[in-house]
Nucleic acid binder design. Structure first.
Lengths: 345, 345
DNA sequence: CTGAAAGCGCTTACAG
DNA sequence: CTGAAAGCGCTTACAG
């Protein structure tokens, strides 16, 4: 881009001003789109900007103006599919709005460690987006000082929060309700549930949706089994489920958990979906290629990330319009891992 | 932290100076660990800092000093396991060094789009780490202006680069060599290879390692099959491989590809490892739980990210010692998907 | 050992 | 429509 190529120090607005024969305040007006600049002057400044390859120094802008066109995402993990997709969505929207995006990982849920991470994120300037699907994230969201602009990506709240709570979420209750109904409609007497860890002490929306479908169908309500996040956790609890001959349908809190359950079932010699049906949550990229291919419900995490940014953007700049929380609708994806129970006609 | 809790504007060094009864330059000396400060003065300043909850403004620091304790990671994707793990490793090391980490996604390999992303990353200040495993990343690495501190996370280079090239990589050649030898040792006549897209026009290190093992064993050398990154790509080429009865062993460029191949084999009714052996690359979290569990080679992506940061850190601060490129050794993980060919004794 | 001055590259009132 | 001044919160020489 820089034709001369031998510039050491990048051009400043003063350099541009000199080249255009104006004061640097006028250059400032031009790059800020201020209307009161004579047309010919503007042209001259623009030409100088182009010639010198000028780019406005973001650090100086932030210091002088007090706002920084930046957002940092606080998350407990960057490798889980859902988390990574949210991050990708945030970045996508931020890029479109010319915002920088930073990232901070909450390695521990320890209060002091979380507080330190929030501080670090605050030091970066700009707004915060915290993924609050787990205790570390929930702690971080709570630890954000009131004066800092923040939006939380949260589990479905029990009751719709006021407009003052800048939160986004997917409709997990509805999603769980749908998959459970799908399983019941196949003829299963009931559906067992392997839960992901809840971020709070309250009953999660997924659990609520599952329970509601069971209630409506008059099906017995087994105790939810507590799983963890990954396939190892699914496998661990799957072993117990596989040993229980009365279990014919299992809903898992996410696809990774389902993978572990599938494996445990296989090891126990129970066929899927012949003897047991399994369904997951998320529609991770590999789920369609498993054998059997996993029935699951697709959640739009990328869209969720975009929404989170839009909301934050609205808070940060009054000019930007505040998008309503667009709750994306979950989509049931029926594949091979679900079918009628044994002996069903 | 802030006991009073009603501070609007955060405390500045001037506020601290006033509270401690010194000039703000002295405060600056204290927070920078400058030795020439009287012990009692230092104590007083430290007390004031604590009381006011002072945190040094990173933006002002960056503007005044010219360096910014920040690094931004440029990557084509945030959801692939390897990429996400590298990011996690960078963040881990950056956090330990009190650096901020930014992220920029290269959504397209288009030259103008890549250049724009590099600019955006450069605007953020600080150093750059670019993941150059694909054309977009390779393009970005090439587009970084010479004056910008950058380290590339690259495929194994054909020849060791000079010390002036701040690159890190894993030993893919060795890794491919090992898995291929494992497969051959099982009795397979040869091993087919499904390649991930190469980031450059040159033959990739994985291909080279595979080929070397074949040569040493005097095995016939099938043409590598070109795959893509995900399971869909693996499935597409897997269909062809499954239809060829002479194929008894398949090495895949990554675990996702292997998943797709496994699925294609299953659909064609060819058992694994009974009729065909399959191996992958990366040891993604789900690979151990597939049925059959996937034989693969574990690569330390998180460590790679940490190394990348260490290298950049060394470039950014002369004080920080430049770590030697620590090439992590890949580890062969034999699971269920590999076994002797049919009819082998 | 410590203070007063200048400056990093911008923006924001204030004049004209 | 455009310029001169002050300031954002720090650091970096320069004095003493």
């Amino acid at each position: 881009m820089n034709v001369t190529g031998h510039t050491r120090r990048p051009a400043s607005i003063r350099d541009v001003a000199t080249a255009a024969g104006v004061s640097y305040q006028t250059v400032s007006r031009v790059i800020n789109g201020h209307p009161s600049v004579k047309h010919t002057t503007r042209e001259r400044v623009l030409a100088a900007i182009d010639e010198l390859g000028f780019r406005r120094n973001a650090t100086a802008l932030a210091l002088a103006s007090g706002r920084s066109r930046a957002v940092t995402v606080l998350t407990a993990n960057t490798t889980h599919y859902g988390y990574a997709s949210i991050l990708q969505g945030v970045e996508e929207a931020a890029r479109a709005a010319s915002y920088a995006v930073g990232i901070g990982v909450l390695e521990s849920a320890d209060e002091a460690a979380v507080a330190a991470e929030v501080q670090r994120a605050a030091d970066a300037g700009g707004g915060l987006i915290v993924i609050a699907y787990d205790p570390a994230g929930v702690g971080a969201l709570a630890a954000v000082p009131a004066e800092l602009p923040v939006v939380g990506v949260v589990e479905t709240p029990a009751s719709p929060p006021g407009d003052d709570r800048p939160w986004v979420w997917t409709d997990d209750r509805e999603a769980a309700y749908e998959v459970t109904r799908h399983l019941l409609s196949l003829g299963h007497e009931t559906v067992h549930y392997v839960a992901i860890p809840s971020s709070t002490r309250r009953t999660s929306a997924r659990t609520t949706g599952w329970r509601q479908a069971l209630k409506e169908a008059g099906a017995p309500e087994p105790r939810p089994v507590q799983g963890s996040w990954g396939p190892a956790g699914g496998h661990a609890v799957g072993v117990g489920l596989a040993a229980d001959p009365s279990v014919t349908a299992i809903l898992c809190g996410n696809d990774d958990l389902a993978l572990g359950v599938l494996r445990a079932l296989h090891e126990a010699g129970r066929s899927v979906p012949g003897e047991v049906s399994v369904a997951g949550f998320d529609d991770a990229p590999h789920s369609a290629y498993l054998t059997p291919a996993l029935t699951t419900v697709r959640l739009d995490f990328t869209g969720l990330g975009r929404s989170a940014f839009a909301l934050l953007h609205g808070v940060l700049e009054e000019s930007a319009q505040i998008a309503p929380h667009p709750v994306s609708v979950p989509e049931l994806v029926v594949r091979e891992s679900s079918g009628p129970p044994p002996g069903h006609d």
